[in-house]
Amino acid sequence: MQWIFIFTFIGLILLILSVFWLRKSRKYESVNSVASSYDAWTNDRLLEKLWGEHIHLGFYEKPRLKKDFRKAKIDFVHELVHWSGLNKLPKGSRILDVGCGIGGSARILSNDYGFDVIGISISSEQIKRANELTTNKDYCRFEVMNALDLKFEKSTFDGVWSVEAGPHIFDKQKFADEMLRVLRPGGVLAIADWNQRDPSKYRFNFFEKFIMNQLLIQWTHPEFSSIEGFKNNLLNSPYCGSSVEAANWTKYTIQSWNESIYEGFRRPIPILKLGLRTFIKAFREIPTILMMRWAFSRGLMRFGVFKSRG
C-alpha cells in the first residue's frame, strides 16, 4: 500500500511537470530571446552548479566509460583542440571563442595552450560571470557581441573556436561567413555543434517532427543545420581559404545526456541551496534532455565537428 502511494505521488508530480513543460516553452523569436534565456540560466546558477563552468557535452573514448562528467567536458575541449590542429599554433596566437558561455573553454585555451583569447556571447550575464571567474584577464577576456555581426577586422585571429552555439543562430551562412572572415589566412577553425540528420535524404515522420520541434522551442533554437549542410555553408563562404573537414562525434558524446541528469542526483545539495523554484526548474529540463538523448541515439540528431584552415 505504501509503495502504491509513493508511485502515485511520483506519477502526479511528473504529470504536473510535463504539463508545465509543454505549456511553457522558450521559443526562438530573435537574438534577444536567446540572450534572455542565457541571462536567466546564468543568473540562477543552475547549470553552473550542475555541470561546472562548461555548458557543453563531454567526451567519452568508449561507450559507458566511467568518467566524472566535469572531467569529460574538459577532455572534450582538449580533444577538439588536437583534432582541429589548434594545438599546432604557437603560444600567443589570438583566438576568438564564439558563444563562449561563462568562459570554461576560453580559460583552457588561454591557460593550457598559452593563447590570447577573446570570448563573445550575446548574453550580458554570461559575459559578466565569465569575467568574474577569470583571473588571467590580460590574455583571456570577454565581450558582449552578436556572432552574426563580429566587431573585428578581416583576418584578425589565428584561430576561431565555437562549441554548441550554432543551433541558436538563425542565419547559418552568415554565421559561417563571419567566423571565416575574421580568421587569418592559414589560421585554424574549430567548431562543434548539435546537428540534425540530413533532411534532403531522410524525411521525418509525424512523431519525429514533434520531437524535433520540441528540441527547437524548449531551448531557444531557430533551427538545426545538418553536418552536410553546415559543411557546405563553410565551403560556400567567400572567405573559405581551403578544404573543410567534418566528422560525426555522436558516439563520443552521447553519454553526456545521461550524465547531465545523473549530476543532479550526485550533487543534490548545491541545487537544493538554490531554492525550491530553481529545484523545480532543474526537473523541468529532464524531458528535453531525455528527448535529446533519444534523438541522438536514433540518428535524428548528430554531433558534428568541423575544421578548416583559413
Rank of each mutant, 00 (worst) to 15 (best):
Arg129Cys: 00
Trp83Leu: 12
Pro185Tyr: 06
Pro238Lys: 12
Ala72Thr: 01
Gln173Pro: 02
Tyr113Leu: 11
Arg284Gly: 07
Ile169Thr: 01
Asp112Arg: 14
Ala246Met: 14
Lys273His: 09
Lys73Asn: 05
Trp21Glu: 03
Asn213Gly: 12
Ile122Gln: 02
His54Ala: 05
His54Thr: 03
Arg197Ala: 10
Gly101Gln: 03
Ala147Gly: 14
Phe9Asn: 04
Glu223Asn: 14
Asn43Phe: 05
Thr135Cys: 11
Arg298Trp: 09
Ala246His: 12
Arg267Phe: 05
Gly299Ala: 05
Leu274Asn: 02
Ile269His: 06
Asn111His: 09
Gly85Met: 09
Ala192Asp: 09
Thr42His: 00
Glu53His: 03
Ser237His: 05
Ser124Arg: 12
Gly99Lys: 10
Asn43Ser: 14
Asn195Phe: 12
Ala246Asp: 15
Ser308Thr: 12
Arg45Pro: 00
Leu148Glu: 11
Asp149Gln: 15
Gly299Glu: 02
Ser93Cys: 03
Lys201Trp: 05
Cys240Gln: 03
Gly304Ser: 08
Leu57His: 06
Arg277Ser: 14
Ile13Gln: 06
Ile6Tyr: 05
Gln214Asn: 14
Ala247Thr: 13
Gly166Pro: 12
Leu80Asn: 11
Ile286Glu: 01
Lys137Thr: 13
Asp75Leu: 01
Trp41Ser: 06
Leu80Val: 14
Gly104Thr: 00
Gly58His: 00
Gly186Tyr: 11
Asp68Ile: 00
Lys307Gly: 04
Pro222Trp: 03
Arg129Val: 01
Gln218Arg: 11
Ala40Arg: 15
Trp51Ala: 00
Met292Pro: 00
Phe170Lys: 15
Leu14Thr: 09
Val163Lys: 05
Lys174Gly: 07
Ala72Trp: 00
Met179Asn: 10
Asn205Cys: 09
Leu272Tyr: 08
Phe175Gly: 05
Val81Met: 10
Asn248Tyr: 04
Glu153Leu: 10
Lys137His: 07
Ile16Gln: 09
Gly241Ala: 12
Gly85Cys: 09
Asp149Gly: 15
Glu125His: 01
Gly299Pro: 02
Asn213Asp: 10
Lys307Arg: 14
Leu47Pro: 00
Ile118Glu: 07
Gln196Asp: 11
Ser155Ile: 06
Asn248Gln: 06
Phe283Asp: 06
Thr8Arg: 14
Thr278Asn: 11
Asn232Met: 14
Leu189Lys: 04
Lys281Thr: 06
Arg64Lys: 15
Phe206Tyr: 15
Phe142Leu: 08
Gly229Met: 07
Ile120Phe: 04
Ile10Phe: 03
Lys281Gly: 04
Asn131Ile: 08
Lys91Asn: 13
Thr278Ile: 14
Gly114Lys: 10
Thr135Ile: 13
Phe142His: 05
Asn146Gly: 09
Trp219Gly: 10
Trp257Gln: 06
Trp51Glu: 00
Glu53Tyr: 01
Pro167Ile: 10
Ile191Asn: 10
Ser256Ala: 05
Phe206Ala: 15
Lys66Met: 13
Cys240Gly: 02
Ala282Thr: 03
Phe157Val: 07
Val188Asn: 07
Phe204Tyr: 14
Leu148Tyr: 04
Ala35Arg: 08
Gly114Pro: 06
Lys154Asn: 06
Ser30Val: 04
Lys231Ser: 14
Ile227Pro: 12
Glu285Gln: 13
Gln173Trp: 01
Ser155Val: 04
Trp294Asp: 08
Arg129Ala: 01
Ala295Gly: 07
Gly119Leu: 05
Ser25Pro: 09
Cys140Gln: 04
Lys24Arg: 12
Val81Trp: 09
Thr250His: 04
Val163Gly: 01
Leu89Trp: 03
